[in-house]
Design a protein around this nucleic acid. Structure first.
Lengths: 200, 200
DNA sequence: GTCTATACGCGGATAGAC
DNA sequence: GTCTATCCGCGTATAGAC
């Protein structure tokens, strides 16, 4: 925290930062507004000078994440005509998605949590997954258009791939732990999604 | 509800049934005990004559599910020496897992929800995923023992597969909807996990 | 903008009659 | 076992001084 004093000077930023930490440790729904203000070292009432509600704060965090993520992606270019059957290209895609997710775990998980809490019957979960894997779907449709035959409907395959990635990203203990390295996870998923269990 | 009168006669059963419906529609954490009793047509106080808390009720539902699931599995035999690179055997495994999950969506989702709410930092999510995919891991270790080379560490591959399945099972709208049929999902996942995007 | 103090409502949990 | 009635803590949100 030493070098970041000037950044944390803004209360809004301090609240966002505290929220991310609290969401990660206690879950989004479990986290009370008083937990956030306490962790940020501010008074309860100050929260409402910056955000209308916890939900509102989450939207702000989400906006931050999107801005950062699409900057990252745009920076390295992203034409539609990728060939995902190529190991390196597939790996590059998985790596970007993995890193964005892991870097924004608190926000990703919070959104996920609130989506489940909204009720599975709402269909909201599917809609979100479909949206989040839209780019992947386009790549698959491009492949199919070139005559390659896919394991199934592009949207379904894309959702399966995205779901796998998200499930692992949520489950893996956040850094440290006796876990796997990012590279090991990415390599494994690349191999599995490219060639399956049967292998080459 | 007509033919099930005798079953619903027991208040405990009625509460469980109502809970499943409420969990599915409003999520586990969102569902209040009064929601459950109201949906079951009982008084609030009656709840505590059967369960100590909502958490306790969830454990009961979980026990029911486990009993039913392991009966299903035991019935069709389950030796450790399966060959998951064989399309039919892989498909059979995925089909059983998919059907158990889908048949018990409310319970699966509730457990998942409370696991996320416990905080990602707790590592609980990973532990659960690892446990739930233990059988799969054993099959993979068997394969590896026979000289087959896997996409990565067996526990990690098993977790990836289980995570993919669970992510889709949660996201797919519960029946009806403009969605995919169970068979289509199972076929797609079988192909993807067996041969990957590159195909045979 | 930030604080302290407080009002208010929701929901978990219990007491006690039937 | 089931009900009605009620208590009480917790968390949200606001009022108002600084």
């Amino acid at each position: 925290m030493g070098l970041r004093k000037e950044r944390a000077a803004g209360t809004a930023a301090a609240l966002k930062d505290a929220a991310r930490r609290q969401f990660l440790e206690h879950g989004y729904l479990n986290t009370k507004i008083t937990d956030i203000t306490a962790a940020a070292g501010r008074a309860t009432g100050s929260f409402y000078d910056h955000f209308a509600s916890k939900e509102d704060l989450l939207q702000a965090l989400l906006a931050d994440m999107r801005a950062q993520a699409s900057a990252d992606i745009a920076q390295q270019g992203h034409p539609r005509d990728h060939d995902l059957t190529d190991r390196e290209q597939l790996r590059a895609h998985l790596a970007v998605a993995w890193r964005v997710m892991r870097a924004n775990l608190p926000v990703m998980a919070a959104v996920h949590e609130s989506s489940i809490a909204a009720g599975l019957a709402s269909g909201q979960a599917w809609q979100r997954l479909a949206e989040d894997t839209g780019m992947l779907r386009e790549h698959l449709e491009y492949l199919r258009g070139r005559g390659h035959d896919l394991p199934g409907d592009p949207a379904l395959v894309a959702a399966a791939m995205g779901g796998m990635l998200a499930a692992l990203a949520f489950a893996m203990p956040p850094s440290g732990a006796p876990g796997y390295s990012d590279d090991e996870v990415i390599d494994t998923l690349t191999s599995l999604l490219r060639s399956g269990l049967a292998g080459r």
